[in-house]
Nucleic acid binder design. Structure first.
Lengths: 143, 143
DNA sequence: TATTAAAATAGTAACAGTTACTATTAATGG
DNA sequence: CCATTAATAGTAACTGTTACTATTTTAATA
């Protein structure tokens, strides 16, 4: 693991992130880690996520939205983001290796990589949407 | 154009954005518009970009990086982003309509759309990289 | 054209997410 | 065990964006 020291904070941050199948923001992970290390600093979480990503142990996701998210699973894969709640999930979707070559031909950039991100509505928010339908209809009738 | 009033600020913001083939940040566009309306407020630029995007006249891009970018060209197309300078360009690449259906099958989200963003090095930064090569080699020899 | 209501503006303050700073603590190598 | 140096907690600063407010401007109507 390069020249990173083995601190309890770093260990727990990595452990908790890898445990999750979700892709937490720094703050979300901070709240989780805080249960094990109550006095940990938010800055420590940010700094370690940055260092762990640099050393390739985790992935920093540049998904849409204001907050960065972190992924304990390294290796190429795509994500779906819920436009309602912001949740990000992995997608079991074949990685499209040929896209980079095609994009190289389409422009004059030297292509390094690509990001494919789907937007949609997660199951939880979908069911909430359906629940809300009757309310919306009611509004229309009375309004 | 819906219920938006025709103010000079709004007109110039839209004019200048559409003129550009780049995809400026709010601040970049502010600097451009300021040449024509020196006393315009940055908040006005932000507010109008938001309203223009809502009314479908422009596009707000959720590209990677900290700043949002705006695109005078509406309609589906993909982008390349330079990892060195952050510049974003359009890519003459066929739009992959079939992806959404495939992604629907791969997960349990209701898929609405997708974003495909390539990362690479733009021609300008490439040539700078080549210029820098000799310096890097020199460092290695002397260091 | 004058009047008026609503929308938009400039300027500024507030805000969110992140990064930087600093004194103190703790991990590693000798 | 000691010395070096990275890492930490706590906090301040910073960046991009949004919200607020008093004033100005648009556009509909008389």
């Amino acid at each position: 693991m390069g020249n990173l020291r083995n601190t309890s904070q770093r260990r727990v941050i990595l452990e908790e992130l890898v445990k999750l199948k979700t892709h937490p923001t720094a703050n979300e992970l901070y709240e989780i880690v805080r249960k094990r290390i109550p006095k940990i600093s938010l800055g420590t979480v940010y700094r370690n996520l940055e260092l762990l990503a640099e050393s390739g142990l985790i992935q920093k996701l540049d998904t849409a939205g204001t907050q960065k998210r972190f992924d304990g699973m390294v290796g190429d894969h795509y994500h779906v983001r819920c436009v309602k709640c912001g949740r990000v999930d992995d997608l079991d979707f074949p990685f499209l290796n040929s896209l980079n070559k095609s994009a190289s031909l389409a422009g004059n950039y030297k292509i390094i990589s690509h990001r494919l991100e789907f937007e949609g509505i997660c199951p939880e928010c979908r069911s909430q949407e359906l629940d809300g339908k009757s309310y919306v209809d009611h509004e229309r009738i009375t309004g």
